[in-house]
Design a protein around this nucleic acid. Structure first.
Lengths: 360, 360
DNA sequence: CATCTTCGTTGGATCGATTCAAATTTTTGC
DNA sequence: GCAAAAATTTGAATCGATCCAACGAAGATG
């Protein structure tokens, strides 16, 4: 029964063990890190001393300073920490990241904060070898903050034109084209777009000006893809309402109110996220509009939930977990180069899209 | 622009900045950690030197060693890392933990590993101020490993009688009693129990012997609660089949096969987790048995999904997020004492439980 | 018996910062 | 103009380990 329950006494250090066992600290260190090079008798003596003094083993804090590598990657976002466990997109992404980390034995540190000041501090002081950045809202700021840390990092979602930043994302133009083409081929001609943010801190119907000056080029690219496909089917894209949301319930509902207040409401909605698409399905159901009989919807992302909602959502599926896996590997095998990867997407047709109503 | 893109050159240290600015390290350090006590002129000089040399700010590795506190808490499990993002119970718990961490600005480090050896290493070397242990399978081993680290830790799920271990959990006996009583009051007299593990590495119908020698006393307590309530209604608990699973799909289905192969199949199932309950609902549906018309089911946990499944699951709801919040606070405000908290549970009646079929 | 290996051990240097008592400079009060 | 008080700055000590060149002691070789 060693007195291991003590709490306020100064913790035992490796040097204490070495002294107690009558060896140098070098040897004591070897007992724990490379036991095979220490003579058995000495090894046991040191181990016994450690045991007797209640030594907890080499403190990683000390080791870290010497070793340099933390063996953990940080995942940062401007959302609250719970975002990682609530949001389906984030969760799928984290599953991919986890997989890559599990495979190499690396840990994951979640980084976030309520306000900007704390965020900056948390990024400054995170004990990690590199960062994966969830660039949702305020993504550009997050990149700035992280860049100052001078560690490898990779941005998710290719939200930036900035070629000095490693990023992994999908071909937004192609994906959007697929979605719009699918609906147009079904016969739709009256569309509305629920858009992700083009820049921070604004929602509402967007002007061509705002599209041109978009900070989040991923959003712009998706819109470009939508419009490209629609144009080919003779749709006048200038008349297609594009409502910018914050990808949350409140602003999406507001967008739907606006869109359906029109004299000529759309028969098809192009949503830039499954989240918005699913909110739309619910909103329409509550107002007695049937999906897809009255209104068709195609989402974007391909989160697992999209297959489970009612009706199951047609969507442009990103290889979310694969993006996560690659992001993690980019940090884990960092070679000093900037890496920008664009993965392909796939149209998944489910029950939320069908021909437009005949009366239309 | 500064040559900040260099990679292989030795990183700049605080001491380099100090030398360049012609001040001592002490002062240079103060410029970053307590700028207000440094004369403005000197402060600017040091900042300029830092800027010019591409200094990334004080390295947390160095600070850590001095400061002692990491300001992060580790959450460990024997499951793969993706468990944190997949499992509904874990996710709800993590949301609670996140909330407490967000509030104090602490970070979260996820700790896990494929095999036992790596797990041990990862726990040894995790840079955290304390641990929250998800004691699922192999929980006792996890506690042993963590104890050696001599950091504060708290076990979730009160799985141990060991009073030297801080733990937070619910009143399993009371909760189980609630569930069984509910079904008995509806008129059920033929029961079966889908049980969580009593100890590691075994599944199947359990003997009284195994119950008595249970390692996971939480499981035993739930069973005790079930049996207590059932006895009061005149049910011979010795005849109630108790099938121990690993809380996964395979073993739960095996349990159901066994249970329903009986000559007198149960009209009510007491499941020790919502996970098993939901698997049971699916299994029964696939075999043409209606819930609750043919068989009633009551789960345990109260995960969000339980409200969403079909039919919505009656269950004993734990304050999962609150447990997480308290666990996090136990580590964050650690005072050296062992803290064992037991929270209350609540029976939530939904559509999966009803009166037994009249023909029975 | 001298020499060369091999094996273990030693102790100083280092990782990158923070802290604090003491030294120094500046300001204030009269 | 000078002493006392206040504001800054210094530099050594410290946090807890790992690494490595050098060294001593056995054992092998000629």
């Amino acid at each position: 029964m060693a007195s291991s329950t003590e709490g306020n006494t100064r913790p035992v250090r490796l040097a204490d063990i070495a002294r107690a066992a009558g060896v140098s600290h070098g040897t004591a260190s070897n007992v724990f890190s490379r036991p095979e090079i220490v003579r058995e008798e000495v090894r046991e003596r040191v181990r016994a001393a450690a045991e007797a003094m209640g030594y907890a083993g080499p403190d990683p804090k000390g080791r870290l300073l010497r070793a340099g590598k933390v063996n953990a990657i940080g995942v940062a976002t401007t959302e609250p920490l719970s975002y990682f466990f609530d949001d389906p997109f984030a969760r799928t992404m984290m599953a991919g990241i986890s997989e890559a980390c599990d495979a190499t034995g690396a840990g994951i540190a979640l980084v976030s904060a309520g306000n900007e000041e704390k965020l900056a501090w948390n990024i400054q002081s995170a004990l990690v070898d590199g960062f994966i950045l969830f660039c949702i809202e305020g993504g550009s700021r997050l990149v700035e903050l992280t860049r100052e840390r001078k560690l490898p990092f990779v941005a998710l979602e290719l939200g930036f034109d900035d070629d000095t930043v490693s990023a992994i994302g999908v071909d937004n133009v192609a994906g959007a084209r697929l979605a719009a083409q699918h609906l147009a081929e079904l016969g739709h001609r009256r569309f509305a777009v629920l858009a992700l943010p083009f820049a921070d801190d604004s929602t509402g119907l967007v002007s061509p000006e705002r599209i041109r000056t978009a900070v989040y080029t991923g959003t712009r690219d998706r819109l470009v893809g939508y419009f490209e496909a629609l144009s080919r089917f003779g749709v006048d894209t200038a008349k297609v309402p594009v409502y910018e949301t914050e990808n949350d319930e409140a602003s999406t509902r507001a967008g739907l109110e606006t869109i359906f207040a029109s004299a000529e409401p759309p028969t098809a909605i192009l949503a830039m996220s499954d989240r918005m698409a699913m909110i739309a399905i619910e909103w329409l159901a509550a107002r007695g509009m049937a999906v897809p009989d009255d209104v068709s919807i195609v989402g974007f992302d391909g989160v697992p939930d999209a297959a489970l909602c009612d009706p199951p959502l047609s969507t442009v599926a990103q290889p979310i977990a694969e993006i996560g896996r690659r992001a993690a590997r980019t940090i884990l095998d960092f070679d000093g180069t900037v890496r920008r990867e664009t993965l392909g997407v796939e149209l998944v047709v489910r029950a939320s899209s069908g021909p437009p109503p005949k009366t239309a």
